[in-house]
Design a protein around this nucleic acid. Structure first.
Lengths: 223, 223
DNA sequence: TGTATTTTGCCAGTGACTGGCAGATTGGCC
DNA sequence: GGCCAATCTGCCAGTCACTGGCAAAATACA
């Protein structure tokens, strides 16, 4: 493998684990770069594994599909977000807690994550297959989050849809916050991407109640 | 093709068109039946086209993927829904209009649609590939609906997210209304499925404002 | 009945993905 | 350092979804 070491991180892990982590990372980075350069559909899996110098069989031991390796950065975010919500003990309003979980999750990711994520989402925006994959993983995340919250709060979703609606709101906030973040980064490559993303998503979260309250004429049941 | 005529419908259409419509329909019906019996992954496309007695090449002139033919009933619904919203001229509250569009769309579908749709959703519930496809088409529908509404209302989504939130609300209502409908039909095969579906989705629509209003403690920004 | 247009079937190919098995690499133990 | 067990990797052969091209069949229309 033509890879230089990634520097000092987790010297506690055994060699084998570090090597696996590195392969996983190189696969995702190389895939993202190649997909951005040549296009997702135009780049075959064989192109990728030849570049990284692993076999096709090995690739599928790290990622379950071509789409998954392309969206690896988003996968990291969803995992971190779900992990934050999993360790949540709730008392009080749910929505701001979900907002904080998102912020914590993003801050816990590696330093260059934001840049990779921006590139990932730009790629997905112009690749139908990745948009579908994105929609699927987002839906799965929603199910996981709501399921965990229902367990934690002892709520039966069959009878009370409010929690599910809050889940939709939270995901909508993440969606539109991220969309705005991408827009701000559209014409200028800025630093401090991570905090900007958190700010934008947090803004979308905070704007939710007022946005809903501000449109009684459009939201109200009958005028 | 071992197919009996479907009876008296649209005698105005030329023979060729009727034949195409019938092939399209037989493909979807047969696919749904085979997928339900043997499972989606276990049924190959070749199994399907052998049963219907068309070539693989012909299949792909009617449906763009194995997933699409499985979800054909949902595709009809999305098309009808989008068409209703397209012809909408808005003055007043948006959400109830979207609810009515949905009801009109469902009522305009063929008589046995509800049964096929129920079977389709049950199949999707146990088939990961179809859940992903469902998430993708739902996302696409959302984009289409919001785009049309923005054009109609002259709203720029970059500045005003409220319309997009209303779109999310509408789709959430359709989701949970449909889920409840599936639940009511779970243990008893009932007739009048179409009106029951409309009722359930309408109930979800109508419950939205109160559901949001009823949970100030969980929705409010800070207590 | 003849002709133009559309639809279909066949063929050969690409590319994503998988199971099985042999060989290489690593971790733990002496 | 050397050895065994566990794990990881690469190769092979195969399945299946999906596609372009071209010739044959079916249909519309005169």
């Amino acid at each position: 493998m033509t890879v230089e070491p990634l520097g000092n991180e987790e010297p506690a892990l055994p060699l084998r684990e570090r090597k696996k982590l590195r392969t996983r990372r190189v696969l995702a980075d190389t895939a993202l770069r190649m997909f951005l350069e040549r296009g997702f559909d135009e780049t075959t899996l064989e192109d990728l594994v030849n570049t990284v110098e692993v076999s096709v069989r090995t690739f599928f031991r790290y990622y379950s599909s071509k789409e998954e390796v392309a969206m690896a950065a988003e996968g990291e975010l969803w995992e971190a977000y779900a992990a934050e919500v999993a360790r949540l003990r709730i008392s009080g309003p749910v929505l701001p807690r979900l907002r904080d979980c998102y912020a914590h999750a993003v801050r816990g990711l590696s330093e260059d994550w934001a840049e990779r994520y921006l590139a990932t989402r730009r790629l997905a925006a112009r690749t139908p297959a990745l948009r579908v994959h994105h929609a699927g993983t987002t839906q799965d995340l929603h199910e996981r989050l709501v399921g965990m919250l229902e367990d934690e709060l002892g709520i039966d979703g069959r009878e009370d849809v409010r929690l599910r609606l809050i889940g939709e709101m939270a995901l909508a906030s993440v969606r539109y916050g991220t969309k705005n973040w991408m827009r701000t980064r559209e014409h200028r490559g800025g630093s401090d991407d991570t905090e900007t993303l958190i700010t934008e998503v947090g803004r979308a979260f905070d704007a939710l109640p007022s946005a809903l309250a501000l449109s009684p004429d459009t939201l109200a049941r009958s005028g």
